[in-house]
Amino acid sequence: MIEVENLSKKYGKVKIIYDLSFKVEKGEVVVLLGPNGAGKSTLLKCILGLVRYNGKIRVNGLDVKKEGREIRRKITYIPQQFILYPNLTVEDNLKFYANIRGISQNTVNQSIEKSKLEHFANKRTKELSEGLHQRLMLAIVSLTDTPILLFDEPTSNLDFKRVLEFKEMIKEEAKNGKTILLSTHLLSDINDISEKVIVMNNGKFVFRGNSEDLLKKTNMKTDITLTIHEELNNKTRAKIKDLLHKAGIENESIKNEFLTISTEASRIISVLKAVEEAGLKIKDFRISEPSLAKAFLEITNESDER
């Protein structure tokens, strides 16, 4: 479990994190979402005890400031950048990180085998392809079996196939009861894997909840576009407008045979009823759900303006 209380962090005179408090319970998957420079990586570094900070951070009950080394034993951190030594071989890279954590040679061998890196074990990492780099990085990460995983922009350097594999890995680790905190600026990372989302901007939390709550908070509307069989005359236009207004729907636009309404998703039925009452025959019916990207932009712009 990670407990953060009144965390603030400055680099020189510039404040990066403002008085943050939150908890990640045991076995929870939390996505830390925010644009570049929001303070996500710094927050992760604070949890690892790699940077000085004000406030309190406890990991599994241990104070990060006092017991950084012990805490780092319980955490696997996956940074944004490559973590490989280019002059060392695949096996030497794995052995190095394994020895640092006191992991046996047997586990190293198993990891090489599991990652299908046997044929490259004696190759220097600088001679490997991008795909093999990624495979080796995942092999290094999977050497450890820690209860807490911290990911810093894990998918930013991965190709599409690896992103899917990565998401599967997260799901698997979550099933095994691991506590996961994942920072990202990619909204696509939220889908499927997150239970809880924290949106961060300019060092502050601007939202906490799940992705549905995020949409609700921004009051994003669903766009309904109806294509009517015939072009709407003035009389029909007035009638449909009146019916929609009576149903409490104000935001409509009528052009030729197209009727576009922007409203909450729950009012779709009311819209359809109003159209039926107006005696219109629907040729085509389209719904555009509000996008998480829009909600994210709205919420971060809002916090920029504050």
Binding site: L48, R69, R72, F82, I83, Y97, I100
Partner: peptide, 14 residues
């Protein structure tokens, strides 16, 4: 510069 230092420091080493 190559990013290995951050990862090394995140390990249980002083």
């Amino acid at each position: 510069e190559q990013g290995t230092l951050s990862y090394l420091l995140s390990q249980p080493v002083r």
